[in-house]
Design a protein around this nucleic acid. Structure first.
Lengths: 252, 252
DNA sequence: GTCATTTGTCCGCATAGCGAACAAATAGGG
DNA sequence: CCCTATTTGTTCGCTATGCGGACAAATGAC
């Protein structure tokens, strides 16, 4: 496959950036807001917004623009074309059912993790883990167990790439502390997150290697902090995660 | 807002079409396959695939291309920017828990329905309803209750637009039968689907109007056919759907 | 009401990306 | 196994596309 510099369509990246500009804090935006958020010029942002609107991926009232459910077709294209999310679902469901908590599968995407699948036991007032959600790796259990599988150099690079935001008073942000957490994770073969992302939520994660995809995944359970301590979480959840991991590696 | 024909970026539609070309039956494709499936010329398909690869939305082994989890960012942009999926989730969870079956929310997209949110009670070997999944309206309970809210002319048009495929021996496909089902749905304020999409799955749906969005939605529960008859489904599930509908309309 | 600032639109020009044409790879037939 | 037919992948000249500077309209400040 010979790839030439002329074989790139710049428009694609711009259009996708415009879609990604929308999030919980920017549900409806004027073209100027989109331009600012994406770094595009105003005329450019305008053209892309109008194009998305024409294609029914967005709607407008003449002033503000917002995404439509048609955008879901895109995510669905991945979910239905990728074998992993499908085979993992029963395992996560069982895990969620067995623990009465929220189970998820995620993987590394730059310095962040992405959720590929999740299952919540309906009893919890679920801190809904949305498929496609990106979170910083450094302050999540899943992120730490994924980082633990990388070389020291790669870890350094990714920790530096992420701005270490203090989401809660308990968030670890110093390079020292984070490296220690990651080394612990590597030694124990599990990682934890104790209310570092959100007060009231603790998580525990193990790694799942998928040789066919040459990629690592993290399987995690998030628990309501009021329901168990970190020690209890390790004692009660970890064995279930490990057996889930075994049944998953069986399937794959 | 003045919209000029020059304000459209053709590249956007092509790029998005390339992403949407991937699905369960086409997980990995050569550029020629993508060209055929999208109707683009081969050089064009190539440029878009290479661009997507460069942007990390796709990967390639030099011959085949496939999507990466990065495209989930797009769907997530909608899910996190749209208030509806978030406020509906607890209602669906409660419905799934109360019935021990699968609950979903969907809306009309052309002659199809799209799932915006879902919740499965982990006990069922869930016919996983993926968010973003599109199904023909004519052979789903949700689709029929949504069609029922339209004018006769609009219904005619949408039924004609959809190719009436016989998914199972029980699938209703004639215009006559379908119109009858839809009129029944309108009169009863609920619609059913009795193994017409998949043997072993029955569903029941009610409509939820959201005036702020000027749009109708369908809330449905799908049950394992072995667990209840259509009559039982109406008797046992419909009241729960109706109360879910009330609590949803409260929230909105 | 006037001016300053921000937001939205137009249009001439450069170039990005189109596809006809060519080349390489694969399949089929004797 | 070689030769041919067909399919798949790549190049490159030309032109339509889409860029952004410049202008206009709207909003806000005083």
């Amino acid at each position: 496959m010979k790839v030439n510099d002329r074989d790139f369509v710049g428009a694609m990246g711009k259009g996708l950036a415009v879609i990604e500009a929308f999030d919980a804090s920017s549900q409806r935006m004027t073209l100027s807001e989109v331009a600012r958020k994406t770094g595009l010029t105003r005329p450019t942002a305008r053209r892309y917004l109008l194009s998305l609107t024409r294609l029914r991926y967005a709607e407008t009232d003449g002033k503000h623009f917002w995404l439509t459910h048609r955008v879901l077709r895109l995510g669905h294209a991945f979910l239905s074309s990728s074998p992993l999310p499908k085979s993992i679902q029963p395992v996560l469901d069982q895990l969620a059912e067995g623990t009465k908590e929220a189970a998820s599968l995620s993987t590394m995407d730059g310095p962040e993790i992405v959720f590929l699948a999740s299952s919540v036991a309906p009893r919890m007032m679920a801190a809904t883990i949305n498929v496609g959600l990106h979170l910083p790796a450094y302050c999540t259990a899943s992120g730490r167990i994924l980082l633990a599988s990388l070389s020291e150099a790669a870890i350094e690079r990714l920790l530096r790439a992420a701005v270490s935001r203090k989401f809660t008073p308990k968030t670890r942000t110093s390079r020292q502390e984070l490296l220690k957490e990651i080394r612990n994770a590597r030694r124990n073969a599990y990682a934890v997150n104790d209310e570092e992302l959100e007060i009231g939520v603790r998580s525990i994660a193990v790694a799942v290697a998928v040789p066919q995809l040459q990629k690592n995944f993290a399987m995690a359970v998030s628990v309501h902090a009021g329901r168990m301590s970190v020690t209890e979480m390790v004692a009660r959840i970890l064995p279930k995660l490990q057996s889930g991991k075994r049944s998953l590696e069986q399937v794959l």
